[in-house]
Write a protein that binds this DNA or RNA. Structure first.
Lengths: 250, 250
DNA sequence: TCAAGGAAAAATGTATACACTTTTCAAAAT
DNA sequence: ATTTTGAAAAGTGTATACATTTTTCCTTGA
């Protein structure tokens, strides 16, 4: 599924004006976003436009455009005459982000149940559910299964979101996913028994949507995400009682 | 897609080109935002960078920065190599925006009830409630009362939102308010009996927050906004059954 | 008459120069 | 030794030139 960050349709392009080494096929904005979300650039860091433009091998102009765009997506902060910083999220905001997601994705699910699923939507979700069933049938989680399930999970959520047919809602949910730990990139509690429960949630949600029960579908999705939040809070309680802010390594 | 010239007529004196005393100089971004939100620039219109820079009497560089930023706020769409358009909101999205607001402001109210109000917060809200009571005591709405109440309403909502202590939530709610009709700028149904009911909602919400009843406070706020949505839908049904998109007139 | 083609005009994308602000850091003053 | 200070360095803000793409519109051909 294509990325459509905040207010803009397909952000930029970059169609190699010259022979570029293969790595830079992505736009400056996309590369920067990846670097931030991937943790290559630590939170709180002040971004130097000159250095960035040298790294990316473009002038400052497209770099500034990218910074503006990413600030709009909520990934960066801007301070006049001092430039852009990678936004830091206090732990409280990370936890709250799950509440926001719960409300928003709950609403999206309600809309999907009201508006109905297309043939193709149903196909994608059923395939994902079946894949998940197969993955879980083994009874354990092996290497690579985690990323496999992440994709299954993404397909289901994205399809429901698409069926909600509301662009603004989609953009807001995407913003939630860009909050460091809130993103399913960094889901910690991917143990078998948790995944099993989540996957069962997906089945129930799908059934509620198919049955055209908006209220029930909404409640199930909210509960689904509340469960994820709960796992996170638990794992935070046991693992890292130290820092009050998310830190990226490197 | 007609390509109408933007600010065609009345843009006579916006800070005549001479010496700008540092204070009155709103940023290019702010001026553009005002123009869009105020309906001076119609939705769907493609923005011409050169023309804008001439209007604002700056070069294209700060204009582009402003466009990037506003796209980030969701007010503009961006199409590579074609520039920025004022985003259009289908009627369905306008109505949905109220649902989103209901969820989000409901959540903010819950947070406020959980986290509590500061002395100053309470003062502001109590003042606003008293002002509203006084305004309504007259039994009718006169000229100017509408904008007066709009301010009262804004104070209450803003204070609750502030007490929620969550930046992302605030940003998302702000985006909702930037959806054309969804904004309280353009609230249609400002008749006396509706305002009376809304104001009573405010009292109840405040009491629930003070009583530290998060769930009830949340429900009340959701219902409050659902009521506003309902008024809007009603007034739309009676007034303008024609267009599928909001048009700025004012 | 209308569609297709293509060159000119206009608009956006990028690079770069320079102005202005912030930051750094070493010398001077206490 | 510590603080102050101020000039150099570094960084951001803006203007502008040029490159590339899109749009316009007039010509040409069926």
């Amino acid at each position: 599924m294509a990325e459509s960050p905040l207010g803009q349709s397909t952000r930029d392009h970059e169609m190699a004006g010259s022979v570029r080494d293969g790595r830079s096929a992505l736009s400056v904005t996309d590369r920067l976003r990846e670097a931030i979300l991937g943790g290559e650039i630590a939170t709180g860091v002040r971004l130097n436009e000159v250095r960035l433009s040298q790294m990316m091998e473009v002038s400052r102009t497209p770099v500034r455009a990218a910074l503006q765009a990413l600030a709009g997506e909520g990934l960066l902060d801007y301070v006049p005459n001092r430039g852009f910083l990678v936004r830091t999220f206090p732990l409280s905001e990370i936890v709250d982000a799950y509440e926001i997601r719960a409300q928003l994705e709950g609403l999206a699910t309600r809309f999907a149940a009201e508006r109905g699923l297309s043939e193709q939507d149903r196909h994608i979700i059923e395939q994902a559910l079946a894949d998940g069933d197969a993955l879980l049938a083994k009874g354990v989680f092996e290497t690579g299964d985690m990323s496999r399930y992440r994709r299954i999970n993404g397909d289901i959520h994205d399809t429901i979101l698409g069926a909600a047919k509301n662009r603004m809602l989609g953009e807001m949910i995407r913003i939630c996913h860009h909050v460091p730990v809130s993103s399913n990139r960094n889901i910690v509690a991917f143990e078998y028994r948790y995944v099993r429960r989540r996957h069962d949630d997906h089945h129930r949600i799908y059934e509620a949507i198919l049955a055209r029960e908006p209220h029930r579908a909404e409640a199930l999705m909210r509960e689904h995400i509340a469960g994820i939040k709960s796992s996170l809070v638990n794992s935070l309680r046991h693992q890292a009682p130290d820092t009050s802010e998310y830190r990226t390594s490197l």
